[in-house]
């Protein structure tokens, strides 16, 4: 869409909130069921993949605050992963740290595996931010009328 034929699209904050609560739910609420399922698959693939690679330790609001800001755009699943990390995975009681050290060593994600897992979850959050913004002001996808070169790829302008 060029600048001169700009159309004011109505905001749909409800869809944006749904998109944050569960990836893809915003588009499903707008009637784009299949698109929403693909979005859900993409975002959850990244987020769950990150958790499988690095363990729940990759979502950590205390030690990796900046990464967590990106991850939290995935919604309650990121908050739940952080809750489990803080209360189940991590050693929360300093007095018990010494006796729980062997367990702590196996659950702490380090090095490349931690970096990649953190990156997966952060990119899942950032991609879901794009999804939230798209759901906030949704423009129905139509085949481009004037840009014939995009017809082949099936992409919107």
């Amino acid at each position: 869409m060029s600048s001169h034929d700009h159309v004011d699209l109505p905001l749909t904050p409800g869809a944006a909130v749904l998109a944050w609560l569960w990836p893809g739910a915003g588009h499903i609420s707008l009637g784009q069921t299949k698109r929403g399922i693909f979005i859900m698959a993409g975002v959850l693939f990244l987020f769950i993949g990150g958790l499988l690679i690095g363990g729940l330790d990759v979502v950590d609001r205390k030690n990796d605050r900046l990464w967590f800001i990106a991850q939290v755009f995935c919604g309650p699943i990121a908050l739940g992963a952080d809750f489990l990390n803080q209360n189940v995975i991590k050693t929360v009681d300093d007095d018990k740290r010494a006796q729980e050290e062997p367990e702590r060593l196996t659950t702490t994600s380090l090095g490349r595996v931690n970096e990649i897992g953190t990156l997966y979850c952060a990119l899942a959050g950032l991609m879901n931010l794009v999804v939230i913004l798209d759901a906030l002001q949704y423009r129905p996808k139509h085949p481009p009328a004037r840009r014939t070169d995009d017809r082949r790829t099936g992409e919107t302008a």
């Binding site: 299949k34 698109r35 693909f38 979005i39 698959a41 993409g42 975002v43 693939f45 990244l46 993949g49 690679i53 090095g111 490349r112 595996v113 970096e115 990649i116 990156l119 997966y120 990119l123 899942a124 991609m127 879901n128 794009v130 999804v131 798209d134 996808k141 139509h142 085949p143 099936g154 992409e155 919107t156």
Partner: peptide, 29 residues
């Protein structure tokens, strides 16, 4: 996977591409 970390960039790229294309492609086929 510690020594093979760079191979994990391929599924990472796939996840990003799937989400982006789900937003952009008008014909989901």
């Amino acid at each position: 996977l510690h020594d093979w970390w760079y191979l994990l960039l391929i599924p990472l790229a796939f996840g990003i591409a799937l989400t982006y294309k789900a937003l952009r492609v008008y014909d989901l086929r």
